[in-house]
Design a protein around this nucleic acid. Structure first.
Ligand SMILES: NC(=O)c1ccc[n+]([C@@H]2O[C@H](COP(=O)([O-])OP(=O)(O)OC[C@H]3O[C@@H](n4cnc5c(N)ncnc54)[C@H](O)[C@@H]3O)[C@@H](O)[C@H]2O)c1
Ligand SMILES: NC(=O)c1ccc[n+]([C@@H]2O[C@H](COP(=O)([O-])OP(=O)(O)OC[C@H]3O[C@@H](n4cnc5c(N)ncnc54)[C@H](O)[C@@H]3O)[C@@H](O)[C@H]2O)c1
Lengths: 217, 217
DNA sequence: TTAGAATTGACAAAAAAATAACAAAATGTT
DNA sequence: AACATTTTGTTATTTTTTTGTCAATTCTAA
């Protein structure tokens, strides 16, 4: 079981890891101790080849003739995803989406602690969401000076997000989870993950219409 | 300017369309009348080749020596995405995420009308979110009998989502936008678009750690 | 009006990703 | 203990996606 750190691992592989992690978690709940790539592939609806190839980017976690030990593989993928490490996060924009995210408990279970919420609206400042205080955006700098922040979760309107992102990166925050429909213009030393919900819905609409029209003919 | 309906268009292309649409919308706001694939590629951070190839899946919208007419291209992509058509949607699960989505105005602008919200919790039934009534999940069948529904937006806990998805598909709803972390087991005649937010956050965490560790060495 | 510049659409090439194939190793059965 | 079966890790092949190239066309400026 050796690690392979030589070659750059493609983002396509990385994006599948959380899905493996979820399925393995389910197997543990079902008290299943071992699994072959073939059976997992049937459950997940992908090819066994892909599973083996993906996992082998990080090391040989399986055993010939046996398959994979579920718990061990779960732990290994957890380690790769850094479930054991903790990230300190803030939410900027205490609106609808900011509230929903602040109230979600599961991020903490995955290692992401929300330590503060920021908003420009004075009516929101001073309130508390899920035991997390809402501060004024102008207090961000002093907050970050006192407490290290890894990730800023941006749930402000699209028209404000570039200005907010600039502030955030100027303070040395290196990770941004962007919920606004606006693409961010930032340097390459910042890691940005976008959640473009409207895009996702429009793709669903396209696929749905395609399916309905296709079956019509 | 002819359409090309012969070859199946890849999902990778489809997923870029909303992004083109957004950028073109911005150009219109900036009162820019024409754009070359080269300039657009610089703004978007992708290759000009890809833009031309993507657009040519649907027809030749540009003109040699001139580029693309922004407004015309915007309209064409809008047509491809079906912005002119309307979808009738329901939200199931009036919790944090259901509330956030119900309160978002922009889905309507894109052609997605939320016509009802459903929940199993009697305390939520009878309330109104953003002028949309919350019904009991048991009333879903009679609701769908009276009013056609294209898309169900599922914001129930992962442990409940498969049972809810079964109900929904049994009633003939063909599109599902799934916000739960659970993958749905459904027939191939249902179109499912997943929004796995935790997965997205974990990918951000991975990339961030990779970047930080990389720059350390 | 004409020459040179710009730019597309189509096709070719390259790169990346997914799938298949298979030798090697371990399992499990008789 | 022998041997057929299972299953991995790895390499090869195929498919898909992205990028590069260029003739043909249109624009534009003089
Ligand atoms: N709610 C949804 O379901 C949904 C869906 C898709 C996309 N989005 C996107 O997510 C973002 C947030 O959406 P929302 O529905 O929560 O909006 P919202 O209006 O409810 O909340 C936005 C919040 O940001 C705050 N804000 C504005 N400017 C700020 C600034 N400069 N600094 C700090 N705070 C500031 C506002 O005071 C407000 O509280 C938007 O970009 C929206 O397009 C939301
Ligand atoms: N809130 C977030 O930021 C967030 C982030 C990531 C993922 N999610 C996922 O989105 C989903 C919703 O999250 P949430 O935070 O809104 O949860 P929530 O608990 O606030 O809301 C869930 C709602 O679903 C209702 N419900 C439960 N069973 C039902 C059933 N059988 N039929 C109809 N309604 C039912 C509940 O009464 C509740 O109102 C979950 O699957 C969660 O994992 C949420």
């Amino acid at each position: 079981m050796r690690k392979k750190e030589e070659k750059k691992i493609s983002i396509a592989v990385i994006r599948r890891l959380p899905r493996y992690f979820r399925y393995l978690s389910d197997l543990i709940k079902l008290d299943i101790k071992r699994i072959s790539s073939k059976e997992l592939s049937q459950r997940m609806g992908i090819t066994a080849s892909q599973i083996r190839q993906d996992l082998n980017c990080f090391g040989g976690f399986g055993q010939q003739g046996y398959g994979y030990n579920v718990e061990l593989l779960y732990d290994e993928i957890g380690k790769i995803l850094g479930i054991d490490k903790r990230f300190s996060c803030i939410i900027i924009g205490a609106g609808n989406m900011g509230n929903a995210l602040a109230n979600y408990q599961n991020f903490r279970n995955r290692g992401y602690d929300i330590v503060g919420i920021f908003d420009a609206d004075p009516r929101k400042v001073g309130t508390v969401i899920n035991d997390i205080k809402v501060y004024h955006i102008d207090d961000l700098e002093s907050f970050v000076a006192k407490q290290h922040v890894d990730i800023a979760i941006l749930t402000v309107p699209g028209s404000r997000v570039n200005e907010v992102a600039s502030k955030v990166t100027a303070l040395g925050i290196k990770g941004i989870w962007n919920f606004s429909p606006t693409d961010l213009k930032l340097g390459s030393d910042i890691v940005v993950e976008n959640v473009h919900l409207s895009d996702s819905l429009m793709v669903l609409g396209y696929r749905l219409r395609e399916k309905l029209n296709g079956s019509e003919q």
